[in-house]
Design a protein around this nucleic acid. Structure first.
Lengths: 237, 237
DNA sequence: TGGCGTCAAGAGCACCGCTCTGCTTTGTTT
DNA sequence: AAACAAAGCAGAGCGGTGCTCTTGACGCCA
């Protein structure tokens, strides 16, 4: 599998493959994951439906590639927000990442639904997805680690130490993290992470009707209030 | 539309309709929303596929009825947990509702995904769903109102007052609530609600791999830690 | 006993994912 | 340059889907 196409055939293959992916992304954005149809893509590209299977093994495989794309796209958006703020400004970085996640989700609702919505039944995410999937959460972990290096105590912010069972439950993630990050900090970070995704999901999936105002700026304002409180909960407010 | 069937024909119609709904629930539980097929239901009930349309207008209508069922089922579970604890024990009630939601979601993953996962593309929830949809959140609101009646100040727990824009964003929900509940309390309650759903969604949709332990009790322990911290965040810890 | 409304069944339309069979094009090897 | 292998494409076809329309049978009520 050459990374750079050498022959005309390989070039054509790479080009058509990316055309298929583009068309898939387009269909995903307009019709959602359920409306993703290899036949429709083939029609759009002017080829027989069977020909698409030369480039994509199955509809599931196409979905997997689009999922990885979505994770990477979201990860890039989050990292851009992260990098735009200096590391001295922890609350600024935190806010930037949160806003980047929400903005990306609002701009790419179907991609968001693909990765954080209901999993496609009968579909199991391959191992290739777990790398890109953790790009955003890694940013939050990084912020926590920076906070820890600065001696910020999160236990007070999250009110109380972890129970023994609670600490044991966090064993997997504690193992891969810098040693300065306490279990209490991880607990708080996970809760903020869940709160962020939950908030974005509720907003995106239409559960805020008759709850949050519909005027321009209302949802932004609510989210801003959430962000400041989340920051306080992990002790960087 | 008689509520109680009088003729034999009406009785048969009601019976077959409920059989169709049961079969739909069954298929939903095993195959998920995407696998819900009117033809499969017809096959299972031993009738022609076209006959099902005498009882159910369309696949979407069947889905809607199942969604309402799911909201009602979750609402009943939450209310049972709520009612099992006396109103003096606010933390107990709060914990019971949270656990009821998670337990119900774990027991009915597809129903949960149906109502809190990605919305079915091209499908808009009819107005019939908003009533049952708010049964659980009403419980949390009730707890907040009880706390307010008891003079519990939530502003301190959620760290800081709302901005003017933040309060304006909460206008719709503030209008329908008992006057004792402050904007700060609603902000905190919504954040807890989003955190609860976000946590359950992350767990249910498999985003806790390599994060939370897989040993029995690990996820329970993590959730318990979340619950105690949520309670503290709304000032009833 | 008519007539009317309801019901079930079947055929059919357009779509889907996927496979298999040929045929053509391309690249490599002798 | 000729031969061969690989890859590409189109078409037909299988079984499945939601949904519609027509046809015929049945129960109920006047």
């Amino acid at each position: 599998m050459p990374s750079v196409p050498r022959t005309a055939r390989e070039r054509a293959r790479a080009e058509i493959t990316s055309e298929i992916l583009d068309a898939g992304r387009r269909h995903l954005a307009t019709d959602g994951a359920a409306g993703l149809s290899l036949r429709a893509i083939a029609r759009e590209l002017g080829m027989a439906s069977s020909a698409v299977y030369r480039y994509v093994a199955s509809r599931d495989e196409l979905l997997t590639r689009l999922i990885i794309d979505a994770y990477d796209s979201l990860g890039a958006a989050g990292e851009a927000g992260y990098a735009a703020v200096g590391r001295d400004d922890l609350p600024g970085r935190f806010t930037a990442v949160c806003r980047a996640v929400r903005d990306w989700a609002l701009a790419n609702p179907n991609e968001y639904a693909l990765i954080y919505g209901s999993p496609v039944p009968g579909y199991v995410a391959p191992a290739d997805t777990i790398g890109p999937a953790s790009r955003v959460s890694n940013l939050l972990v990084q912020i926590l680690a920076d906070a820890a290096a600065r001696g910020i105590e999160v236990a007070a912010a999250t009110r109380g130490e972890l129970s023994q069972a609670g600490r044991a439950a966090l064993e997997p993630v504690l193992g891969v993290l810098p040693p300065g990050v306490t279990g209490e900090a991880i607990q708080g970070g996970l809760m903020v992470w869940a709160g962020l995704l939950g908030t974005v999901s509720l907003e995106l999936f239409g559960q805020f009707h008759n709850v949050i105002g519909e005027n321009p700026g209302d949802r932004d304002a609510f989210f801003a209030e959430c962000v400041t409180r989340w920051a306080a909960q992990v002790g960087i407010g």
